[in-house]
């Protein structure tokens, strides 16, 4: 069965079972997102994919496409709300783009550019989050975690290792390593695990590779994330 809905006044076709976000992507329409990944079920935590249907806010990654609905996405109101969400993510962690190896292929940074975020707006939290460099091949820089749980899901559902988890509640939430010592070196984590290669920001980094790809030649240096993703044929850019 199939149908169509209106996205910002234009018709988008969908197949039964597709979410609003999936149908939009398939139609070449971009709805911003951070925690959503095409190979995993919706997570609905970052709220960046927020849209309005009938005056109500919905996470488009989780909301099923329904015949005839009118979806608002690219509006000044929703762009401002997404920008506020990004600003909150920035102040909640310690994000220092100028010396971050992920600069230019970091989805958080790319979304900030996409949404014309010009300031942090809110007071920085400066949370103390020590780096875990105990693993021979991977360094964990918790300062940049946005709690998307992609590493948690990849390690649990694809790698079958269950290396990561989120612990704590609310503002005390943080990424932890599933070892008695809490150190990555004391797990069976490996550099070719999917979880080692899925972080959308700069938490899980391969050691000794920093800046080998020049700044300026990275995926989001040349084009905004929306165009990178649409150019990839509706698939998430791998890098």
């Amino acid at each position: 069965m199939s149908g169509q809905f209106q996205l910002d006044g234009q018709a988008v076709p969908f197949e039964d079972g597709q979410t609003i976000l999936q149908a939009a992507r398939a139609a070449g329409r971009y709805i911003p997102h951070l925690c959503w990944h095409p190979d995993f079920p919706p997570h609905g935590s970052c709220k960046l994919c927020v849209v309005k249907v009938g005056g109500r806010h919905l996470s488009s990654c989780a909301a099923p496409a329904v015949e005839g609905i009118e979806v608002e996405s690219d509006t000044a109101e929703l762009r401002a709300e997404r920008r506020a969400l990004l600003q909150m993510l920035f102040v909640e962690g310690n994000h220092f783009c100028p010396s971050c190896e992920k600069s230019g292929h970091c989805q958080l940074q790319a979304q900030a550019y996409e949404h014309e975020m010009m300031s942090a707006r809110f007071a920085y939290f400066y949370p103390p989050r020590p780096v875990d460099a105990s693993h021979p091949d991977i360094v964990l820089d918790f300062n940049r975690c946005i709690f998307c749980e992609l590493c948690v899901r990849a390690s649990r559902e694809v790698d079958g290792k269950n290396v990561f988890a989120l612990s704590g509640r609310g503002i005390h939430k943080h990424l932890v390593v599933n070892a008695e010592s809490g150190r990555l070196a004391d797990t069976d984590f490996a550099a070719d695990d999917l979880a080692a290669n899925i972080c959308p920001v700069g938490v899980i980094l391969h050691k000794r590779q920093g800046f080998r790809v020049p700044i300026g030649e990275r995926p989001y240096d040349a084009r905004p994330i929306s165009r990178v993703e649409l150019a990839a044929g509706g698939r998430e850019a791998d890098e």
Binding site: P98, S99, C100, E101, P130, V131, A133, V139, D141, L205, K207, R208, Q209, G210, F211
Partner: peptide, 14 residues
């Protein structure tokens, strides 16, 4: 201190 060494040339130039 406490940062990965490959970040250093990029950070200290600031």
């Amino acid at each position: 201190q406490g940062r990965p060494y490959w970040e250093v040339p990029v950070m200290v130039q600031r």
